[in-house]
Amino acid sequence: MSTIENYMLETPEKMLEIIEKAPELFREIKKASINKIILTGSGTSYHSGLQMSRQLQHLLQMEVVAMYPFEMNEDTFLMDNEQTLVVGISQGGSSYSTYNAMKLAKSKGCLTASMAGAEGAFIDEVADYILTVYCGEELAGAKTKGFYCTKLNLLLLALSIGLEQNRLTLDTFTEKVEEVKKAAEHFKGVYDASEEWIEQNKERLANSQEIRITGPANNYGDILESALKLLETMRCPVTGYEFEEFIHGIYNAIDEKSTVFILDDGSEPRSKKMKEVLSEWSETIFLLTTYESEHADLVLPTIQSSDFLTFNFIIPLQLICAKIPSLRGVDPSTPKDPQFHMKLGSKKFNK
Rank of each mutant, 00 (worst) to 15 (best):
R167G: 08
E280D: 12
G240I: 02
M274K: 00
K176Q: 14
V277I: 15
K229W: 03
E179I: 15
K106Y: 14
I315P: 01
T98E: 03
A227G: 11
S293T: 12
T172Y: 09
E196G: 02
Q165F: 12
D265R: 10
T284Y: 12
E245V: 07
V177I: 14
H248G: 05
V177H: 03
Y134W: 12
S107H: 07
A227Y: 08
N201M: 08
V65L: 13
S305P: 00
D75E: 11
N252I: 12
H186L: 03
K347E: 01
C321E: 07
G345A: 05
D192H: 04
P269Q: 02
G162K: 01
L228I: 00
L224E: 00
E256R: 13
V277S: 04
C149R: 02
A66G: 11
G189I: 01
L168P: 01
I161W: 14
Q91R: 04
L155S: 02
A118H: 14
I314E: 01
A127I: 11
L263V: 12
L155N: 01
G221A: 04
K106L: 14
E24L: 13
M274C: 05
D265N: 13
M1L: 10
T112A: 07
Q91S: 06
L78V: 15
F349P: 00
T169L: 06
C110F: 10
V86E: 01
E242K: 02
M1I: 13
K275G: 08
S97E: 06
